[in-house]
Structures are given as structure tokens and as C-alpha cells.
Design a protein around this nucleic acid. Structure first.
Length: 285
DNA sequence: AACCAGGTCATGA
DNA sequence: TCATGACATGGT
């Protein structure tokens, strides 16, 4: 038996690798022989949980800790969720699910391609782009591909990008690649901006409006106050928290505001986490 | 074989 | 500013 590197998880801190990687927040993870295999930024690696131990191979412990946000105190979230009946149930069902700290560029492109189209298709798009334009990596004799950097995409050109069968998203992705190339500090700018300003920066990319901007902030910038009201969340609130609200006369925007308000009151600054838990519970029904 | 999918953008009134 | 259709593809 080969010995792999190990992280001893803090026994006070909930962490469930399976929940975290199977909830759909990040593309391109898959399970094989008890291991999760994935590519993050420039590295392919595998990881496996055995109780309080996290075995991994391919990257360093800092990388693992940062990606899975192992230092984040999840109890701050759970203390906030436990007083709400739906959120509490979602908390129990998804116990240990952590919001990842994804690579910002890949996350942005991924979220751009989620537009109204189910996540599986978006994942397939990211996979196709990677295998055509990304850099080849190897782990356990299997091939993996990085997600191409902005420069890789620009150098490959629009026809090559379009050949990945990513439909009309190709144009927006190319524009974003050029924009990021011109402003390599965009990530810092988002990180340093307050919430509304961060949303504005991201919304400045073609194909990203408020909603998608908030997804990106939640998954790649650790902004747990992000609360993107999408079709599913709208439905969850319709059927539970805002039951009886007749919103047929309201525009969607007004209803979305009502959803945001309710979420802020109930879950405070951890509403993004609440959203991920509620969504996952709803999705698995 | 139609129809739908975690949305955005460009139109038109 | 508000409602409506187009967008390109894969899965049911």
C-alpha cells in the first residue's frame, strides 16, 4: 500500500468531501476507486476522505486547505441556520458540505455558460474547452487537462474556441479572455472591492449580469453574503418562506428582491451558504 | 421529435 | 422601464 500525504482534519470542524464535490458547485470532479480526481488551476490531483483524515496526491497541503477552505469555521454558518426549519433540515442532510474556493477565471467562464442551461451541459462545455485548449496533465496514468488561461484562449482564436461546441457562449468567453489579459489585476480588484462594487466589476463582462456575478462571488471569492436568486431558489422560496405571497402582479425583479430580503433577515451574512444548502436539498428531492 | 434547461441581450412599444 | 424573442446545443 502506497502512503499518501495526509491532512488531519480538525475534529470540531465539519467536512464531508463527498458532499462538497458532488453538489455541483465545481465542474470536472469525478470519483474512481474511492478517490476523487480533479483539476484545479494548474494541477491535477486526487483526494480521499477517511474519517478525520484527508489523503491526497498531486498538490501540497496548503493548496488543499485553501481550495477546500478548511480553515473556515463552518459553525458560524450552522449557528445561523439552526433556527430555521428548512435550513436546519438542509444542514443535516448536507452536513460537512463546504463551499470551495475555486479558480476565479475558470469559475467565471463556467458560470457564464450556465445560462438557463443545466449544469451538466455546462460541465461538458468546460471539459471540451479544456481538452482542446488546455494543457495536458497526468495522474495515475490518466490524462487530465487544465482549463486554458485567457492567453491560451486568445492565442487559439475564436474558430478554435467555437469548435468546442459551446454555442453562443464562445463570443462572450473570447471577449472576457481579452479583457482579463488587458487587466491581469482584475481578481485583486474584485477581492478588494466592497460587495456592490464587486458585483459591478463582474457585471462589466459581457454575458454576466447581477445573478451570475453573485454565483462567481460565492464560489471563487468567498463572499458568503452572495445570494443569486435563480429559478430554483425562487421556487424554494415560493413554496416555503414566501408561501401565500401572490406575486403574479409583481415583476420577477420585485419577487427576487423579496427573496433577497427574506434571505438577509433569516441568514444574515451567511445567506450564500444557506442558499447552497437549500439548493442541494431541493435538488436531491 | 418536440421541448426544455440555475440567463443575458437587443429589440420594440 | 417593461415585456418579448433570439440565442446554439445536448439530453429526455
Amino acid at each position: 500500500m502506497v502512503e499518501f500525504d495526509v491532512i488531519e482534519l480538525d475534529s470540531d470542524q465539519p467536512f464531508c468531501l463527498d458532499k462538497t464535490l458532488s453538489c455541483g458547485q465545481a465542474p470536472r470532479w469525478h470519483q474512481e476507486n474511492g478517490w476523487w480526481y480533479g483539476v484545479v488551476a494548474d494541477s491535477a490531483f486526487k483526494v480521499r476522505q477517511d474519517g478525520d483524515k484527508l489523503h491526497y496526491d498531486g498538490v501540497g497541503s496548503d493548496f488543499i486547505s485553501r481550495y477546500f477552505c478548511l480553515d473556515f469555521d463552518l459553525w458560524k454558518v450552522y449557528d445561523r441556520l439552526k433556527d430555521d426549519v428548512y435550513a436546519k433540515r438542509a444542514m443535516q442532510e448536507n452536513y460537512g458540505l463546504r463551499i470551495l474556493n475555486q479558480d476565479a477565471w475558470e469559475c467565471m467562464v463556467f458560470q457564464m455558460t450556465v445560462n438557463r442551461i443545466r449544469t451538466k451541459s455546462s460541465t461538458d462545455r468546460i471539459t471540451r474547452i479544456s481538452s482542446r485548449l488546455g494543457k495536458k496533465l497526468n495522474i495515475d496514468g490518466k490524462e487530465y487537462f487544465t482549463f486554458p488561461k485567457p492567453a491560451d484562449i486568445v492565442n487559439a482564436g475564436l474558430p478554435a474556441l467555437k469548435s468546442c461546441n459551446i454555442s453562443y457562449f464562445a463570443d462572450n468567453i473570447m471577449i472576457a479572455a481579452n479583457k482579463v489579459l488587458e487587466n491581469p489585476l482584475w481578481e485583486n480588484e474584485v477581492n478588494n472591492a466592497d460587495y456592490d462594487a464587486a458585483v459591478s466589476i463582474l457585471s462589466g463582462f459581457k454575458g454576466i449580469k447581477h445573478r451570475v456575478a453573485e454565483w462567481i462571488l460565492l464560489f471563487a471569492f468567498k463572499r458568503y453574503e452572495a445570494f443569486p436568486v435563480d429559478a430554483h431558489i425562487r421556487k424554494i422560496f415560493e413554496e416555503n418562506y414566501l408561501k401565500g405571497h401572490y406575486f403574479g402582479t409583481d415583476t420577477d425583479d420585485k419577487f427576487d428582491e423579496a427573496v433577497k430580503d427574506a434571505a438577509s433577515r433569516k441568514f444574515g451574512d451567511y445567506r450564500g451558504y444557506a442558499l447552497e444548502y437549500l439548493f442541494n436539498t431541493y435538488r436531491s428531492q
